[in-house]
Design a protein around this nucleic acid. Structure first.
Length: 816
RNA sequence: GCCGAGGUGGUGAAAUUGGCAGACACGCGAGACUCAAAAUCUCGAGUUGCUUUGGCAACGUGCGGGUUCAAGUCCCGCCCUCGGCACCA
């Protein structure tokens, strides 16, 4: 057998698969479907190792299910809108569309060299008007249903460039281009009322739990949505000349008597409302401006809590009439709750720290067992003290009682609060889906008539990075006639968040060429939901919640018949380099090209799955890649061994051992792929089977045992290293493609051994092993122990206090 | 800061979910083959200390405690690293 040449073999089979269209999928009601999906990539222009890992996991699973007779849908496309294309346009004077298309072409070729089993005829790109047309259509439907609405919201603003900046374009409070400090600016923008689905997004977690989705993802989403029960309480606010109220939200109404000050977010409207009454307005205004430059994360991160007392105004604690000071502090966020809190320093650690810094009194109102508020807040439950008529109750009881009482007194009510916020989808950018709305001075907001969709992006645009969105200055785009009354009107120039594109692309894959509707329900209801979705854990909250929301919206539109889009989820760990996630923006990408060239796609694919479990973060190192390449060559050379007659015939025991190794490997690989999604151990057991074949290489091939084992080995290896397996498969006297071969079946009876080694522990230390028949009873175990010299030595002159035999596993003796 | 993960030999990791810690690899060392080297095949090894060279013993899964006949796995308290935090995707 000549040496293995991965270059010619890989190319040959990639071409064969393509021309025979073996991965082309079509609806077939008689066949069980399997929709295997990986999160679609952003076309950055370079495939990196993180991509290879993600798509390789999907490919192994898609191929495995094909070999198990399923009708598999496995697709690829491009999340093609977004900021980097626009940045490239500014930097390199290349049109975003051109840049994106070039990148797609490069990455498509890179994908093809890796031999992934995609049905390329279904490829989509979100920047294609035939795709984003439907974003616009959905948006109008949402608007009709009251799910899309306008509201004022902050954007990052660079006063020098006169432009809106993404969070990524602001670091440490300065603009990425001109390095001048940025500001916040209020703009009317489009929102989607995703919070209408808050409760359902939480409650349908039930059908995703029990192993379908990783618990950590469900937990993150739960906390992200952040449903909490509590009360809204109105505090009267007084000044020398005016009165007002401050509404707060608290999850701990039981601590109301301990409220010794109030804190409002720096953006809170009460500051403007009582402006004339504030004695230290300069100081307060300064603080508000400083907070405006910080992001929410920066605000919550700082260890030393900042804030300023708003002098001249006081709040009155409704339960005891106490006059308490009001502070503005940026640890209170404007968009959570009501943007104002009652501070209970005795029972909230943040309030405690703030009270100490600003010298505010601390009143203990809940006493736990041995609790003290001297060195930190006590956040647990206990007995009510200093709380008027509630004294003596347990705080848990008081929680309900206080709310009842507040409601009766009329200064508050029981509420449910969510951290979850409505989805701001407006972007003041060019490279995105135009929001299909028109502003008419007569009719107000009018949607673009459906038959005029798509609203296409104009192409002749200059990109400077300064000033307003390029769409805003494009007269041919902006100036339109009102579809209702024909008056001169203006087109909306905001484009959509790219998370819109990725919220339903997987449904479009089912019917990607449809130009009559977004998709044909009779087709999508066959393929959907996605059986297994694979992607990075970093998408646990945003993308995966948006997509779930979109699906529920489609269900309510009657366009899909399931509640959830993704039945099972595999969150792949990130590939890092130098401790950071590989990404083009970080500039730490490792390209697979050289590795594919030197060692072949099979070796790289094998290695990346062998290097670590799929869910775990992986610090990239190519050490070991060569080892996988050697393994592949070792598999190749086995062809000679199984085809060569040996002088030494195999004994029946040898044959039994070989077949046992084979059945064991089939079982392990099958369970690891299908049940555990644990590919590294699947590969290691394939390696063990190869090693076993080498151990028994002296076998005569007369009876075909080695060959049978080898054939099954190739089947097990095909999803991982498909190219070499096709080549070997063809060399064995077989028909058809290895990629379409039936998966091997194991026989439990062939795996079972008659005798097993049982470790013997004495007082917790391993002192020997005994060999017994499988399933032997305790009496037999005792007998074996008595016969074992090594173990007996340790037992001399001692009494056995405990004799614990865990069947077929371990024997533990406790002696004295 | 909040939420979610992770930490096991020189390295990547494994461990039937409480039952022989280190499978399978990388790297390393030794041997065979070779004029030689590479490739290949075979063998070896957690660390430390004894050793009559057969072995024997102690220690060992980020740190400190605990539960248990038995803990990488369970409980309590820490430390460090990473991801997400709503305009990167």
């Amino acid at each position: 057998m000549s040496e293995y040449n991965h270059k010619t073999v890989e190319k040959k089979w990639q071409q064969k698969w393509t021309s025979a269209e073996i991965f082309k999928a079509s609806k077939d009601d008689k066949k069980e479907k399997f929709y295997c999906l990986e999160m679609l990539p952003y076309p950055s222009g370079e495939l990196h190792i993180g991509h290879v890992r993600n798509y390789n996991i999907g490919d192994v699973l898609a191929r495995y299910h094909i070999m198990n007779g399923k009708n598999v849908l496995h697709t690829m496309g491009w999340d093609a809108f977004g900021l980097p294309a626009e940045n490239a346009a500014i930097k390199n004077k290349i049109h975003p569309a051109k840049w994106t298309k070039q990148n797609i072409a490069i990455m498509r070729e890179q994908f093809k060299k890796l031999g992934f089993s995609y049905d390329w005829s279904r490829e989509i790109a979100s920047c294609d008007p035939q795709y984003y047309k439907w974003n616009q259509w959905f948006f109008i439907k949402m608007w009709e249903k009251g799910l899309a609405f306008r509201k004022s919201a902050n954007v990052n603003w660079c006063p020098v460039c006169q432009t809106v900046l993404a969070n990524e374009q602001v670091s440490e409070g300065v603009c990425w281009r001109c390095k001048n400090p940025t500001e916040h600016k209020e703009l009317e923008q489009w929102f989607v009322k995703i919070t209408d689905y808050s409760d359902e997004l939480l409650s349908s977690h039930e059908q995703l739990s029990n192993g379908h989705w990783p618990e950590q993802v469900l937990s993150m989403q739960k906390n992200w949505i952040g449903k909490s029960y509590g009360a809204e309480v109105d505090f009267e606010v007084i000044t020398k000349n005016k009165k007002s109220t401050l509404k707060i939200f608290t999850t701990r109404p039981d601590t109301l008597f301990g409220a010794t000050f109030m804190v409002v977010a720096p953006e809170h409207k009460i500051i403007a409302e009582l402006r004339s009454e504030i004695e230290n307005l300069d100081e307060v205004s300064k603080y508000v401006a400083a907070s405006g430059a910080k992001t929410n994360i920066e605000r919550s991160q700082s260890k030393d809590k900042s804030g300023v007392e708003i002098k001249g105004i006081k709040a009155i604690n409704p339960v005891n009439g106490a006059k308490i000071p009001i502070f503005a502090a940026d640890y209170v966020l404007t968009d959570y709750g009501t943007g104002a809190i009652m501070a209970v320093p005795a029972h909230d650690q943040r309030d405690w720290e703030f009270a100490h810094k600003f010298n505010v009194s601390i009143v203990e109102v809940i006493k736990g067992e041995n609790s003290s508020v001297a060195n930190s807040a006590y956040e647990g439950s206990g007995k009510m003290i200093n709380s008027g008529q509630f004294n003596g109750l347990s705080s848990d009881e008081a929680l309900e009682k206080v709310i009842e009482w507040i409601e009766k007194q009329g200064f508050g009510k029981k509420t449910i609060n969510f951290k979850f916020r409505d989805w701001l989808i407006s972007r003041q950018r060019y490279w995105g889906t135009p929001i299909p709305m028109i502003f008419c001075p007569e009719c107000g907001i009018v949607p673009v008539p459906i038959e005029q969709l798509p609203v296409k992006l104009p192409e002749d645009i200059e990109f400077s990075g300064e000033g307003e969105s390029p769409l805003k200055t494009c007269k041919s785009f902006v100036d339109v006639k009102c579809p209702k009354c024909g008056a001169d009107a203006k087109r909306e120039t905001d484009t959509m968040d790219t998370f819109v594109d990725s919220s339903w692309y997987f449904i479009r894959y089912c019917d990607p060429k449809n130009d009559k509707e977004a998709f044909d329900v009779s087709i999508t209801n066959y393929w959907m939901p996605v059986d297994l979705y694979i992607g990075g854990i970093e998408h646990a909250c945003m993308h995966l919640i948006y997509a779930r929301f979109w699906h529920k919206f489609l269900r309510d539109m009657g366009m899909i018949n399931t509640d959830e889009p993704f039945t099972n989820l595999l969150t792949q760990g990130m590939v890092t380099l130098g401790g950071n996630v590989m990404s083009k923006s970080r500039g730490n990408v490792v390209s697979p090209d050289d590795m594919v060239d030197k060692y072949g796609a099979d070796a790289l694919r094998l290695f990346i799955l062998f290097a670590a479990p799929a869910q775990k973060q992986l610090e990239w190192s190519s050490d070991g890649l060569e080892g996988c390449w050697r393994f592949i060559n070792r598999v190749w050379r086995l062809q000679d061994i199984v085809n060569t007659k040996s002088s030494q015939p195999a004994t029946p025991k040898d044959k039994e051992d070989l077949l046992r190794a084979m059945h064991k490997a089939i079982k392990k690989v099958t369970i690891d792929i299908e049940k555990k999604l644990q590919f590294n151990t699947a590969i290691s057991s394939i390696m063990e089977l190869v090693n076993t074949l080498y151990v028994y290489k002296f076998h005569s091939n007369d009876d075909g045992v080695s060959k049978e084992v080898y054939k099954n080995l190739i089947i097990l290896l095909t999803p991982f290293a498909p190219h070499i397996c096709e080549e070997i498969w063809q060399n064995l006297d077989t028909k058809g493609y290895a990629s379409l071969a039936r998966w091997s079946v194991f026989d439990e009876a062939m795996i079972k051994e008659n005798n097993i080694e049982i470790p013997v522990q004495i007082n917790g230390k391993l002192r020997g092993t005994i060999n017994i028949e499988i399933d032997a009873d305790e009496a037999a175990v005792k007998e074996a122990v008595d016969k074992n010299e090594k173990v007996k030595k340790h037992l001399e002159g001692k009494n056995i206090v405990k004799f614990i035999y865990v069947k077929n596993k371990i024997l533990t003796l406790v002696i004295k």
